[in-house]
């Protein structure tokens, strides 16, 4: 495969895979927590939290990218703090691309997981409580396993979104080959130079293959797990 892709193209594909996987791994625990809170708890500011979670979905991606830059950039407060304390920076690094992708994917992941947690019958959780299980055990042994098909669907959806994320990423971490040039930014760049179409088309084909594989795989996994969960 490496032979029919130029090193620059291959670099973009590998980077995109890495960015998308980390974006999902990064957002999944938070997404499960937030989805559970939104589905099951009553608290002050629930609507505000709900709004914040959905913000990246409705804001122009460039705005989200710019807000990230103002927060995590080299001269921004959080960015400076992270660099001085941990020597860690997001700005113009692949980690920044992963952060941007994670935030852009977050609302989709939360939505999918929230729906699947809401579909878990609270009566089963009550039954578990009467059998002596505390909140953590009820969540780990009843809610989480029964919501698993939705969590997988959410993760795959988030992965697809992270693979395709363009606006926030290019605004936040620019478009540096080998550093922050993901698949969509590479396609964009190749289309800007004369004679780049063939590279762009190869990358487009790869994007289609990766996305389709992810979708089919998630469909298949969700089906198997849903069948297991229902006990059939």
């Amino acid at each position: 495969m490496a032979e029919w892709l130029s090193p620059a193209e291959w670099q973009a594909v590998a980077l995109s895979l890495r960015v998308a996987i980390w974006a999902v791994l990064l957002s999944l625990p938070f997404a499960i927590f937030v989805a559970h809170a939104l589905a099951r708890w009553e608290f002050v500011g629930k609507q505000v939290l709900n709004g914040l979670v959905h913000l990246p979905l409705v804001l122009p991606p460039v705005v989200t990218g710019y807000l990230l830059l103002m927060t995590f950039g080299r001269r921004a407060p959080v960015g400076m703090f992270l660099e001085q304390t941990f020597g860690f920076t997001f700005a113009f690094q692949w980690t920044g691309a992963a952060l941007a992708a994670a935030i852009m994917a977050f609302p989709l992941v939360v939505r999918a997981i929230r729906l699947s947690i809401e579909a878990v019958d609270p009566k089963l959780e009550h039954a578990a409580r009467t059998l002596g299980a505390g909140n953590a055990r009820v969540f780990a042994t009843i809610t989480l396993p029964l919501a698993l098909p939705g969590i997988i669907a959410g993760a795959v959806l988030g992965y697809a979104k992270a693979m395709g994320e363009f606006g926030a990423t290019i605004t936040f971490v620019s478009n540096i080959p080998g550093q922050t040039q993901t698949l969509p930014s590479a396609i964009y760049s190749f289309l800007q130079v004369p004679g780049g179409e063939s590279s762009a088309i190869r990358l487009v084909a790869i994007a289609i293959v990766i996305s389709m594989t992810a979708l089919i795989l998630s469909e298949y996994l969700s089906k198997i797990i849903a069948r297991k969960v229902r006990g059939q």
Partner: peptide, 27 residues
Amino acid sequence: PNKRKIGYIFQDARLFPHMTVRQNLTY
């Protein structure tokens, strides 16, 4: 509820669908 030491038998049984009968019994 989890500290009350009660055994609740529900009208709709409410067995955990993702567990075997044995896992339900020993929950």
